[in-house]
Design a protein around this nucleic acid. Structure first.
Lengths: 195, 195
DNA sequence: ACCGCGATGTCAGCCGCTGTCATCGGCTCG
DNA sequence: CGAGCCGATGACAGCGGCTGACATCGCGGT
């Protein structure tokens, strides 16, 4: 590639993770990250769109995975079933050990700007999944609802998994969340009286 | 209050909305907003936490409303029903005319940072609703799932209402979203095969 | 008349982020 | 083997969001 040390991007990410974990996200400057990686601040911004993105680079991979799996399961499982299948597949094949996810999540949970970015990523996932369903003929309220509801259940499962609120792997929490969702919403909802 | 023109906060908000709409969010500086409002940049940040918050101040009111209504409907309607009732009540009593919401949403849709903030607000709403349910004895996967699913349906309904994707008031889109959600998720979901 | 206080102004400064141009090697091609 | 292209990085200047610290000004109460 170049005449410099290789893996500039990986070095930057590692330096950022270390500093975010030890000193905190806010009190870490981009200049510090770059210096620790043996690069300059300008180069940091050539590899990452902004200071937050370091923690989310690679999330496109999850989205692609979910899109592919949803598309693959659609014919057999229908809209909601395909979304469920996609998340269940990702739960067992995409996410690293809890320990790693937890460390990362601790950093995110401690910093509102990072939470915002995480929610944005999840929203893009929902939009992408909805589009997959639309491309396959699902009309619009249903497509969007299926996608958003799937993401909603995933958020709950992921949170419970990563915080260790209860025993079990991510896939267990995910199945529990989907089951809970079906039983909560499947039951007839009383019509709200006019007041 | 003071010796200056009154309604400083309202003037700042109006100035910001005008400039965001005409010049765009990015190309509007806080100094310009303040000048247009007859104040200084420093004063802007005394009224709004950051440049984005101008568009979201007042969203706490929606959250409070939803929390109150959910709490009030809980006993009669249960977790999911209370959340549904809360959103339906808000849909008819909180949101201004479409035209106003649409103008605001156009600004938000054009700027990723604003979308992130909006998602953050919705996430706080979900967290608050989940807490209401927990306080009333709903165990945790269910509380979080009910809240997040309600927000998911609301997101879809609001989007369709504000973009004019279909006819109808917000409440109509909301009922359609909830109905769609029930029929999609209430049906038995096929078990995903081992492959 | 005096004083406390809250809202605003002023000033200096950090830091995220960007545009622009220079630099340095490895690479291809003749 | 030399010339020149090219991709990755460096160096520098600058804007703008945001904050801390301190001064100022009048309103309202005593």
């Amino acid at each position: 590639m170049g005449r410099w040390e290789p893996n500039a991007q990986a070095r930057l990410r590692q330096a950022a993770m270390d500093l975010y974990a030890s000193r905190g996200f806010e009190r870490t400057t981009v200049a510090e990250i770059a210096e620790r990686a043996g690069l300059t601040e300008r180069t940091f911004f050539r590899h990452f769109a902004d200071k937050r993105e370091v923690l989310f680079a690679g999330s496109e991979r999850l989205q692609e995975l979910l899109v592919e799996t949803t598309a693959a399961s659609f014919e057999a499982s229908g809209p909601a079933g395909a979304v469920v299948a996609a998340f269940e597949h990702a739960a067992t094949s995409y996410f690293p050990e809890v320990a790693f996810s937890r460390q990362r999540q601790d950093i995110i949970d401690a910093n509102p700007p990072l939470q915002e970015r995480e929610l944005a990523k999840l929203d893009r996932v929902a939009a992408a999944l909805a589009q997959v369903l639309r491309d396959r003929g699902v009309a619009d309220p249903a497509a969007a609802v299926a996608a958003e509801s799937g993401v909603a259940a995933f958020k709950v499962a992921f949170t419970r998994w990563v915080t260790g609120a209860a025993e079990g792997e991510l896939i267990d929490h995910l199945r529990a969340a989907f089951t809970t969702q079906r039983s909560l919403l499947g039951a007839p909802v009383p019509v709200t009286p006019g007041t």
